[in-house]
Design a protein around this nucleic acid. Structure first.
Lengths: 194, 194
DNA sequence: ATACAGTGAGAATGTTCCTTCTCACACTCG
DNA sequence: CGAGTGTGAGAAGGAACATTCTCACTGTAT
């Protein structure tokens, strides 16, 4: 039907998206050229453009892909940390601590991307807003399950604290903000529990 | 001695910095060209480069200037909102509400800038980190004065919540995150007051 | 009045990309 | 085997932009 030569379409897409993630997240969108993506993925420029007709298309595909993988990782990591008896909403801070401590950490890829105005259009902004909305929704589900008496604003507040920690840990290159964030969340959860 | 032709050096610098602020904050650094700055400020390219030998130099001057003006505005705005009897740390949320509600709001200029990796170097990152450190220090001073019994992590926690609100209000183009942030801070201040 | 120092306007330079195109090759299908 | 399609490698086209340079002018100081 349409078997490819050196690499299947799926393979090429997967390699491109994996490379795009390392590059776009690690260096920022504007600092990454299409040739960089080719070099790291091994997918030729010609094929790259046949898969993603423009850099903006590639960026959109990357953001969607990163949303999927990040949310999967996050929910799994939270579940794992909550399984030891820790409050699930509080466990979100333990979950992200691993990430923030990793050497590749460079803040939240979505928050970073939306600041690169010359690389981003409304399509991208929609994906980014959806990502943050989904995060809040997940936190809301955890709150409904474990904190049924908590106020309606709690999930959004936890999300705000998480985003603030992402940002400050990147700016200060330290996990100290995360610790303060977790203590604040802990305090909050204790007083809204009653 | 050295009187200029059309405009004094001080005038030119002031006009350039004012224009740079509108442009860099409003559109992002990469999306603004030196010619844009010339057009808006009325300062010729030649003079622009004699004042700031490179775009990176101009960006550094802008960040320093914005730090000064933003902190002045912020401390004054907090003081004004706190003067009516509101807790000073809580008043920070009322203070930034005006800003976030204004049509020019586009998130925190420092958080946005640090994400534009191809426009930013270590000199800029230092200014940005200092800005956030100064903000925390100011919050710490307010805490020492009004909440002497509060835990040491409180100022950093408030700063995290503020930054998270800055980011989410920009992403969602809404002040809803700020409301959740303020409620969380309120809860926090009440329980750490005792 | 004249030489000079600084300036505005904007052209010229050099670089960095995104995107497209060329050419030769590999593999499929008849 | 022979035509045709898809591909890799990388050159070529074109646009945007930071930075420098040219040229003519203005105001100052001798």
């Amino acid at each position: 039907m349409s078997p490819a030569a050196t690499m299947t379409v799926d393979d090429a897409q997967q390699r491109v998206l994996a490379s795009a993630d390392e590059l776009f997240y690690g260096r920022g969108i504007a600092a990454v050229t299409m040739s960089d993506v080719r070099d790291r993925s091994g997918v030729s420029l010609r094929r790259l453009y046949s898969l993603y007709p423009s850099k903006k298309d590639l960026v959109a595909a990357w953001l969607s892909d990163r949303h999927d993988t990040w949310m999967s990782w996050f929910t799994a990591s939270v579940a794992r940390h909550a399984s030891t008896g820790t409050d699930a909403l509080l466990a979100t801070f333990d979950a992200v601590e691993e990430w923030i401590n990793s050497p590749v950490y460079r803040g939240c890829g979505f928050i970073n991307s939306i600041a690169e105005t010359s690389e981003i259009d409304d399509r991208h902004r929609t994906i980014i807003a959806s990502h943050k909305r989904d995060l809040i929704n997940h936190l809301a589900a955890l709150a409904t399950r474990d904190h049924p008496a908590s106020p309606a604003w709690l999930p959004q507040a936890i999300a705000v604290i998480l985003d603030g920690a992402f940002v400050q840990c990147a700016i200060f290159n330290s996990t100290e903000p995360l610790r303060a964030a977790k203590l604040a969340a802990q305090q909050l959860l204790e007083t809204t529990k009653a």
